[in-house]
Design a protein around this nucleic acid. Structure first.
Lengths: 337, 337
DNA sequence: AGAAAGAGTCGAAGCGCTTCGACGATTGGC
DNA sequence: GCCAATCGTCGAAGCGCTTCGACTCTTTCT
């Protein structure tokens, strides 16, 4: 293993000088810098992460806590994780993967061991028990999701309430008067994951504001459950011509079932999905959708957490960032005939 | 921050004794152990990860390199990553997430900085340029996937060749004489990712052995491309009654298209998928499938890498583990009528 | 009974880095 | 032309842990 001391010897300077070349915390003459950099290059030197963490009290690691098995759509989680990892590297940070099932003990472990400088926490519940621990241990943190009480903590999330409203308003503007929200599975609402409830709130508010009849049904996302939900909706309200789908897994079954039942999309029935663009583009017809900005959420989370690390001590700049929804009109929605 | 020295003081012993209590590398009397453990508990002590890494030359971190945007089915990657993380915790290891786009530089960085003790590398290409670097830096590593030359490296993968054969044999045993393999997108074959080619080999070999007519078409997985592939197959070989699907994204479109074209599954046409069980169970009808044992691959990878770490110096125990395929018969395949 | 072996504990060295204070050499202001 | 400030460099302390050797007691064997 190549050490800083060897680099120093090879470059003919003292170890501290090499350190300052690397950290840029003191000025270094061009000539010295060149010699040191040449030595680093020729020896293939990489600073020892542990030694660095010990001496500087900074590990340059961000912990990312993600759900182990989630009701959330897996690709979204993955995309967020990738965005976090990529953006973190831009700041010279690495990402440590933790699973939600480590729970509060995991948070304590990371906070106590100095393994990571900060945490990014996903799949936030309304009364998430990791939040008090985060506060208590004063771990710099960003939540992806919105708890009931975000005081003192930075949060990043899609504005799901506005998302629900946007879908309704789009359908309303096309003349639909009877619409349905095909939501997430029961478990998601029970687990208090906020986002599903917020979507529903926005959906209902906008429906009321626009004088539209709206129903909501939760759906597990399998073919069978989607079939059941759809037939119940059509039984109760045969005039339903607009669907908002929040559970991505239900999209393919729904389209298939509508096709099978002779309801053409978008001629007879309009469908708006809340899903990643990729999913919307892969369907046939391509779906009008509000995209879940997974990548932006990941990037934002990293930026906020880095801002916190840089302004440590400065007044707590903990803001909640709600990303406004963007509805993209594609082929699955049209004016009611 | 609570240090080992504080624990020692509180327990009335020397720091080294506390260390030995933690590491179990020397015997400790029950009484001392109790005192130390009580002190640890009451102070909420967690050893400083950096200090530990520096002193012991072991970080207790495993680096996991995953594809950034992959042709592989995302949930499979996710499941592997989760299995790796969970299993790693059983060994007291944490997982550092790296993206494949860091490439060889990433491998060098990790190997050089002592940030991780070992690497688990996914999305292995036949001539993967990370492999020589892994060899050269003598980083303990496990590959998930199979390169052209695995010499000296541990590999874990599904036996895709046997998988291809198993699917054919199942269809053959049901009396199907004309079958088709709907494969991965062009890119996957071009990128030399081995597994797709190995599946094809097994598919063709078994077809020949069973005297069955077999065609192979690559498929991007969108609705349109699946429709194109299907209609071409049926045009060329109208008698095709069996399908093997490797691209998970093509499953839903394929089922939808078969339904639309009036071919009942499994009465008229049998479908066998190569996909995670979850996907097979979510389809309607539930799919006969060879499951991709993502969880087992992740677990195996961790076990192998830990074995390497424990037997360091001992003769290189680098074996290739090909997990034999398991075909589960469900509702999508039946005897040819 | 005495030597050898083991159990249980301690002190101190050292892992590779950062950072503080110090110091000589320039530089600029007056 | 002198003092202060600044630049560029160095030496040494220390971050919190592991681990080696040494030491004291017991226990066991002959």
């Amino acid at each position: 293993m190549v050490t800083l001391a060897e680099v120093a010897r090879q470059a003919g300077v003292s170890p501290s000088t090499v350190s300052y070349v690397l950290s840029r915390k003191r000025s270094i003459s061009d000539e010295t810098r060149r010699k040191v950099e040449a030595a680093i290059e020729s020896l293939g030197y990489h600073p020892h992460a542990g030694a660095r963490a010990l001496a500087s009290n900074r590990s340059n690691i961000l912990a990312l806590m993600i759900p182990l098995r989630s009701d959330m759509y897996v690709p979204v989680i993955m995309e967020i994780a990738m965005a976090v990892t990529t953006e973190a590297r831009e700041f010279g940070q690495d990402v440590l993967l933790l699973t939600k099932d480590e729970g509060t003990a995991g948070v304590r472990r990371i906070a106590g061991s100095g393994l990571a400088d900060a945490m990014i926490v996903m799949d936030i519940e309304l009364e998430d028990d990791r939040i008090p621990v985060l506060r208590e241990t004063e771990t710099p943190a960003v939540l992806i999701g919105l708890p009931a009480d975000p005081a003192g903590l930075a949060c990043v999330d899609l504005d799901f309430e506005a998302t629900g409203s946007a879908c309704v308003e789009h359908l309303a503007s096309l003349g639909h008067r009877d619409i349905a929200l095909i939501g997430e599975g029961e478990g998601v609402y029970k687990r208090n994951t906020g986002f599903a409830a917020r979507t529903l709130t926005g959906f209902q508010r906008a429906a009321a504001a626009n004088g539209i009849r709206a129903v909501h049904r939760s759906c597990e996302g399998t073919y069978e459950s989607t079939a059941g939900v759809l037939s119940r909706i059509l039984e109760e309200r045969p005039g339903t011509t607009g669907f908002v789908v929040q559970n991505e897994a239900a999209i393919a079954p729904l389209l298939s079932l509508l096709r099978l039942s002779g309801r053409a999309v978008p001629e007879d029935t309009s469908v708006v999905a809340i899903c990643p663009d990729q999913v919307a583009l892969q369907s046939s017809p391509r779906l009008t959708s509000v995209s879940i900005p997974a990548e932006e959420m990941g990037r934002q989370a990293v930026r906020q957490v880095m801002a916190q690390l840089e302004t440590r001590d400065a007044e707590h700049v903990s803001q909640t960032t709600l990303i406004p929804p963007t509805l993209t009109v594609r082929e699955s929605s049209a004016r009611k005939s």
